[in-house]
Amino acid sequence: MESLVVPALILLAVVAGVTVAYRAARRRKAAHGASRSRPAATPQELARAAAGRLSEDEHRRLYALIAQGQAMAAIKFYYESTGEGLRASRDAVGALAAHPQPYRSPEPVQALQEDDDEPQRFAYRYRAIASKGDVTREVSSNMLNDEIYGRIRTLARSGETEAAANALTRHSDITLKQAREFIELLDD
């Protein structure tokens, strides 16, 4: 009888391990399936959003590349202009080619100070890096995130460098002079 106790315990441990692994795999598959069930943006919505990320000159140049049949150059141009990922740039250019969008001037950009009285502090530090040539600047702050940094970049690219520098100073611990140096690297 004692000779069967050890193999029985090993068998029970193996069965328990397989059961736990099976349940974990089912949960992972269910979670993956749930994330796929979200409705994707329609191609028209994707085209509209993609066109909204471009300045008037970028919009014109992108459509010139599309009209000339230079899809790869158009994707590269969109990628460099917006900072989106390569796959997102490919999808955006495809949507813009299939559903042409007229250029719409952006709403007047309000200063970030109007949106929030006191900057929110996040649980993580956000790192923003800008470089031009061999000059590189970095801002690290727990009052920045993708959305706020995107608004600062939009301000800089639309020529409102002083508003962008003020917003960056407000959402970080750098001086206005350092913020202006950082913004100079963004506005081309």
Rank of each mutant, 00 (worst) to 15 (best):
E56V: 02
R170E: 08
R125W: 14
A8V: 05
A163D: 07
E160N: 13
R121D: 08
K177A: 15
A34C: 12
L11D: 05
R23S: 12
S131V: 05
R151A: 11
R104L: 08
S131H: 08
L9G: 02
A50P: 07
Q113A: 14
L96V: 03
D134Y: 14
T154E: 14
E184C: 09
D57V: 15
S35L: 15
L86Q: 12
L176T: 09
Y22T: 13
S81R: 00
A21T: 06
E138C: 08
A34H: 15
Q110C: 12
S55E: 05
A24P: 07
L168I: 03
V109Q: 06
A25L: 08
M1P: 13
R48Y: 10
Y149R: 04
S105R: 05
A16Q: 03
A165W: 02
R125V: 09
R27P: 12
R61H: 06
F122H: 11
R137E: 11
V6S: 12
V135H: 11
Y126F: 09
R28C: 10
A88T: 06
A179V: 00
A164P: 06
Q70H: 00
A167W: 05
T82K: 02
E84G: 07
L54R: 06
R27D: 13
P108G: 05
A47K: 00
A31Q: 08
